[in-house]
Amino acid sequence: MSTSSETRTAPPTENAGAAPAPPTVRGTRLTLAGAELGRPSSPVVSGVDLDVAPGEILTVVGSSGCGKSTLLRTLAGLLPPLSGEVTQDGRPLTGPSADRALVFQEDALLPWRTLRANVELPLAIQGLPRSQRRAQAETWLDHVGLADRMQQLPHRVSGGQRQRAQLARALAARPRAVLMDEPFGALDAQTRAGMQDLLVDVLHGTGATVVFVTHDVDEALFLGDRVALLGSGRLTAVRDVPHPRDRSAHDDPARVALRREVLTSLGT
């Protein structure tokens, strides 16, 4: 995490009036080479070769239990690879770090902290004084549309608002990579679309590398610059997405063909 601090720019502007310009951070390159992932008792995915370029959004699709979360936890540094290499900018991962934030599907907010206190936590870990971290947390919460819910406990707000707060918490730490494990999996379709737009909006210009895991093909095609297919214990394909982040391009022939390929590989 110390490697990145000098590359980070100033905190988001603290005047609440203008929407704060997302700070730009240099993205990071995440690479897996011949990696076997999982726990020693139960390897889940083997022979993974994947290169995530700085600043790109890579979506990973696969049916449940195919090792998507394992892949993400490995990239987060929570799970060491069983064999092969997992590197960040050429250096092997040694463990979890604030440089690679993880956003979970389930409620990972601490239930005894208000939304603001949750977003303040990574800033407190980075050693920011109280007034600064409070101001930054409020800016981020404002940015994800939770300005009026900051003092609420997580269980008092909706699932979508909890995920917004998780996003704010992840981004507040100014990570160079954001790893998202089906963050919108538990949300209804309408909220989900709104969250996708918000994610694009918030991530746009931060420059962070994003690995976004989902079982929803349309979500993967909307958000991803590239989409990786995970199935039957290995990485089956990585494809460029034509017209990423454009919902109106759904009838583009190249996009339709890719969608069909993804669905076929998922066995649906």
């Binding site: 987060a76 993880l102 990574p122 870990i125």
Partner: peptide, 23 residues
């Protein structure tokens, strides 16, 4: 996941004790 969340924020053992385990 509470502990994993704090780990991926760069929190160490004492931070986990004070911010996750005890509360």
């Amino acid at each position: 996941v509470w502990e994993e969340a704090v780990l991926t924020m760069g929190g160490g053992r004492w931070r986990i004790l004070g911010s996750v385990v005890l509360p």
